[in-house]
Write a protein that binds this DNA or RNA. Structure first.
Lengths: 187, 187
DNA sequence: GTCTATACACCGATAGAC
DNA sequence: GTCTATCGGTGTATAGAC
């Protein structure tokens, strides 16, 4: 077994991300990852016991980075609209969708995806709760629902944009910006 | 080539839907579809030139049914909340997500998915426009954005439920019900 | 119309040289 | 650590009997 955390190890995770993002999980094979990063297929199995382990490791690294970045945004008490910008501009939305699809048949990955989803939803809901003025809450939109709508919209926006659909996107972005700009300015 | 519209032809589309819904597009193979409907794999290629044709035919039939059902709901001037119930209770939401994933790599399918998405969004937006009272529109939620939020939320609800995530779902459903129950009663 | 049988490509994973 | 070579399985798609 090759060393986890080494340069080659990281490049294998990079290759996995690239294939997932650009070609989807149907193209995610050990041969394809090896080709993308310029090594021989056999080497994948020196660093990982099997493909599932490689996939789980890739998601773990990606999720850890995401949560770290989100925490950093929140700790600096950024205005909500900036947090939203970081969510929707996240180029990994397509990749995340592929991970979710894979989670339906890889048990170890499902556990990770569930934990990541619930963790980030709670973080986003807490941030909304701390920052959104009460008039918005009077509209009957609890923070956790706002977090859900925002992330599900972000995912759908990316998915449709990838297909070439733009209908209603401008209106949706405008609505979310208005909602998130109702946050109190950083104390 | 076997006759399109025959009993066997329809059962092949049924099998494709079943596999997509229950196992995802990673499991969608000619062998699997044949097994599910109880015929030999060779027969698939008597009725369809290749797998892509089978997939496109399946989506076409499913989309046509969806639009017909939506039209029927709208023509009877059902209250909005009933239309929403039909959307979110639609057992095909999982299947639709798999079609979208497939559309990223099957050109003929992408065209169909785009047309279907834009058509149903317009229909839903029009229905909202006709039925939602003006106080809701004053909140800054254009009909097309409401249609987008509702469908993206419905998709995310199904996707997360399939993984075993339920966080915030009750709040989201309550919000949508409240919004849609603001519709005027059928004239 | 439906079948058996099969060609060929590519998959995950492993043996073993260097 | 990285390689060549290969096994068994499974995918799409086709040949040809009945």
């Amino acid at each position: 077994m090759g060393p986890a955390g080494s340069e080659v190890w990281h490049s294998m995770l990079d290759g996995t991300e690239t294939v997932l993002r650009e070609e989807g999980y149907g193209a995610l094979t050990s041969r394809r990852v090896a080709e993308v990063i310029g090594v021989k297929q056999r080497l994948i199995y020196y660093y990982f016991e099997n493909m599932e382990d490689l996939i789980v490791a890739t998601f773990r690294r990606s999720a850890a980075r995401d949560i770290e970045r989100l925490q950093e945004s929140l700790s600096r008490d950024l205005p909500l609209d900036e947090i939203w910008e970081r969510c929707v501009d996240n180029a990994d939305a397509r990749m995340t969708a592929e991970f979710v699809a894979l989670a339906n048949r890889i048990d170890k990955l499902r556990t990770e995806v569930i934990a990541y989803t619930e963790r980030t939803r709670q973080m986003l809901a807490d941030a909304i709760d701390r920052n959104v003025v009460s008039s918005d809450r009077a509209n009957g939109l609890p923070p956790v629902a706002a977090a859900f709508f925002a992330t599900s919209a972000a995912i759908a926006l990316h998915r449709e944009a990838a297909l070439g659909i733009g209908m209603g996107h401008a209106e949706v972005l405008a609505c979310i910006r208005v909602f998130f700009s109702h946050g109190k300015p950083a104390q």
